[in-house]
Design a protein around this nucleic acid. Sequence first.
DNA 1: CTCCTAAATGCGAATGATTATCATTTACAA
DNA 2: TTGTAAATGATAATCATTCGCATTTAGGAG
Lengths: 132, 132
Amino acid sequence: MEATAKHFRKRDAILTCLRSTKVHPSADWIYEKLKAEYSDISLATVYRNLARFKERGEIVSLGTVNGIERFDGNTKPHVHFICTDCSGVLDLHGVAVPEELSKTVSGAGQVSSCQLTFTGKCNQCINKEETA
Amino acid sequence: MEATAKHFRKRDAILTCLRSTKVHPSADWIYEKLKAEYSDISLATVYRNLARFKERGEIVSLGTVNGIERFDGNTKPHVHFICTDCSGVLDLHGVAVPEELSKTVSGAGQVSSCQLTFTGKCNQCINKEETA
DNA sequence: CTCCTAAATGCGAATGATTATCATTTACAA
DNA sequence: TTGTAAATGATAATCATTCGCATTTAGGAG
């Protein structure tokens, strides 16, 4: 009797994969990554489990970047930077949504979450362009 | 010689439609709305012109809600509330992204825009549920 | 006025991410 | 063993969005 039942190997692998990367990946990115270890994994399984994790609040969706949904295994609220050039997503540590803000919103309804995202060109893409 | 050339009537109508509603509509919503006045308008024209406006910075995209892209004719930065029940989008006046925040982000790259969105259940949906 | 070109449009097909379907496999307990 | 419910793989279906192309339009040059 294993701690990790074979039945959930892939499910666990999906969550672990998402949690151990900083790229804020898409479903397909996770799928491609896991194919190395699980050659028979199905893309549908990745989508299904991501939806399940999301429902349960175990992961978070960042919304779509270029029409593709991106996920984050870190559910602690934090700020993101999305690069319009490379579609990369970065965590912005040291930036936080002011606590007061969230409280001011009560006029509209019950707030369950909040997302602050900056968009622009990341340093890596800026450098790449200068070099070119 | 008319001020509004016939050639651009539909284009103008799309922009006007978007600017004169508070619902932060989808392309299809605008299409359905404009069909009343322009029975022969094509959904592709709505998409094409929205893309054009977006490129030129004349409108703004809020990203997707339930897989459908939503637009805002108000390009002045402001905060949104998205209802998970009815998929409605509200402007949150009186809430603003602190100026300092945007400046702190320079470590990641050149910021061109920023978006703050609260998610939850709007008052209307809360009331609806209580009544039911 | 006529001819020409570039832009705008309508229509319908194509695309592509996501979801649904369904048969099969798995875990686990009676 | 056997039954049941969940998980999965493969693939078809869905549906918002985009593309291709023929047609229409505006507006200028001749």
